[in-house]
Every structure is written in C-alpha cells, then in structure tokens.
Simulated assay, not measured.
Amino acid sequence: MWIESIIMPREDDSEPYVPAPQRDRRNGIAAALEQSRKLRDAVQGFVSAHDLSDGVRWLSEPGLLPVITIHCTDFALAKLREAADFVVGSAAPIDTYPALVGAQAQVAPQALLTPALAHLQRRV
C-alpha cells in the first residue's frame, strides 16, 4: 500500500521565539526556495542512503514552502519518521484518493446542476 506523506524540517524549540525583522520579499523568496531545495535533497539523500528507493514512488519538487510530499510504503514511512532532520506526517493511503488511483467515470454537468438549480430557485 502506498501512503502520501508530508515532510517538514524539524524545528529547534530550545531558543525563545524572536520575530523576524522585516525583509525584502525577493530575498525571502530566494531563501525559501533554497530551503525547500535543501529539504528535498536531504530527503533524497536519506532515501538513497537507507536503500528505500523501492519504497518511494513519487517525491514532489521544491516550492516556496519547506514542505515535501512523498508517496511511499509503510516501511519507508517508518524509516523516514526515524530521521532526526525532518518531521514526517501521513495524510492517508493513496487508495482513498480515487482521482489518483485510476480513471473515473465522467459526470455530466447537468446531473450536478439540476439539484443545485432547484435549491437556488427556492431561495429566490
């Protein structure tokens, strides 16, 4: 069974919270992209170092947030949770997402709109 999991860098809670100073957004975006890329590289390195490549089907590309989505097996998820560098959570087994599993039957727009129109006409 494949599981969709979300990975984030582990935060250091030992220091008190200090609000960040105002920054130029361009520098912030560049820093966020770099942090996300480093997290993805760390996850890829962990998967390779622990020979989990067969247990990982898909790994998302880096984005503006330091969050990586991964589709993996139960065993790979357990190993990733043991890592000290990042926090791993799981969404749900991928089989529960019908759109990702296989082709879906198409629903005609009229089938969706007819009950909605009747409901809206009563309110008007």
Rank of each mutant, 00 (worst) to 15 (best):
V107E: 06
T96L: 02
A30T: 04
D74P: 09
S36G: 06
Q121G: 09
A83P: 02
L77E: 04
E34M: 06
P66A: 12
A20H: 10
P19E: 14
C72E: 06
A42H: 04
N27T: 12
R123D: 07
L65H: 15
G55I: 00
M1Y: 05
H50S: 08
A116V: 15
D41N: 05
A83H: 08
Q22S: 12
V101R: 15
A116Q: 14
D95Y: 12
I70D: 01
D13L: 06
A111C: 02
R122C: 04
H50Q: 11
R23L: 08
R81D: 04
A32D: 11
T114W: 11
E15L: 09
Q104R: 15
E11M: 10
R25T: 09
A108W: 09
H71D: 14
L117M: 14
Y97C: 03
L77P: 01
A111M: 07
S5N: 09
H119G: 04
Q22N: 07
A108Y: 07
E34Y: 07
A99F: 09
R57K: 10
D74Y: 08
L117W: 07
G102D: 02
A105P: 14
L80K: 00
G45R: 10
V67Y: 03
R40S: 02
L65M: 13
W58T: 09
A20V: 11
A76P: 07
S36I: 01
W58Q: 13
K79Y: 13
I68R: 10
E11I: 15
R122D: 06
D41W: 04
F46D: 01
V47M: 03
E4P: 05
E15I: 13
Q22R: 08
L39F: 03
A83L: 06
I94F: 00
P21S: 08
E4K: 04
L52R: 00
P109I: 00
R37P: 06
V101G: 04
A118N: 14
L65V: 07
G102W: 00
P21H: 02
L59R: 01
Q44K: 08
F46E: 03
D12T: 05
G63M: 02
S48N: 14
S36L: 02
K79A: 12
D95R: 15
I6P: 01
L80G: 01
R40A: 11
S48L: 14
E11Y: 05
E15W: 06
Q22E: 08
F75K: 06
W2G: 06
M8A: 13
D24P: 03
D95V: 09
I70T: 01
D24R: 14
A105G: 10
F75Q: 04
P109A: 03
P66E: 12
G63K: 02
A30I: 06
L120I: 14
D95C: 11
A49P: 11
